[in-house]
Design a protein around this nucleic acid. Sequence first.
DNA 1: TATCTAATTAGGAATAATTACTAATAATAA
DNA 2: TTATTATTAGTAATTATTCCTAATTAGATA
Lengths: 124, 124
Amino acid sequence: MLERITNQKQIILNYLEKNKSHPSAEEVFLNVKKILPRISLATVYRNLEQFAQTGKILEINGATKRFDGDISDHQHFICNSCGTVYDIFCKFPSAKNFKNHNHKIGKIENYQILFYGTCKKCKK
Amino acid sequence: MLERITNQKQIILNYLEKNKSHPSAEEVFLNVKKILPRISLATVYRNLEQFAQTGKILEINGATKRFDGDISDHQHFICNSCGTVYDIFCKFPSAKNFKNHNHKIGKIENYQILFYGTCKKCKK
DNA sequence: TATCTAATTAGGAATAATTACTAATAATAA
DNA sequence: TTATTATTAGTAATTATTCCTAATTAGATA
């Protein structure tokens, strides 16, 4: 399916490119509404998803919370296709420097690395 | 407030420690229910949050989706207190090795590092 | 061991976040 | 222009999470 350029898309994308506040979908909606008063929230959600999938924007956080009883030092791989979360036990040397680092923004108390891709099960 | 040990807490924690599937709250609820048929979903949510805050378990993903129109190479710092998302432009040398790495689980197409802490505004 | 008290619980209502549906609209190809 | 079909507005439905309240119970104390 060919992708069409609409006014709504252009204004949403333009808002995100100019705005550095990492807005939620609701916040994008409220702000874009100032320019396009009749835009629908569903349109915002649909386009944000499309933009994220085509690499035009980044998606931070999101999805359902998941929990892990294993608190040892490891990271996670999330399959874009089936959503399964896998453990990654590889060590990342520079990662240790992250913890307790005093960044100008604040002290880093914790961090997690989320890897995305398609798992081998889904590749088949 | 002193923290009390309840049957519900023990069984939830025990389930998470034995289970490597990174379950959602709903999944924890359904499985713990097999042992405690009368447990409430709210109890599961409440305890999962408490466990995560006291470092007994890890919380993966979650929270409202946020979007960033800046797709340049950078990471994010999320304030545990006010939820604000900040950009972190520091370079992490080993990070470059992540992308396109063929892990046994699948090919890493993308990754993001989420840093958590309290931002300086909230520290005051 | 009985009693007290505050943390915790079950159950359900309420809210927040996201997705699905449908008829109308509009972008682009012919 | 016209035809085709992606996209949209508006809203309903669904999913995820939090809030509320009376009843229960863990653990401290008598």
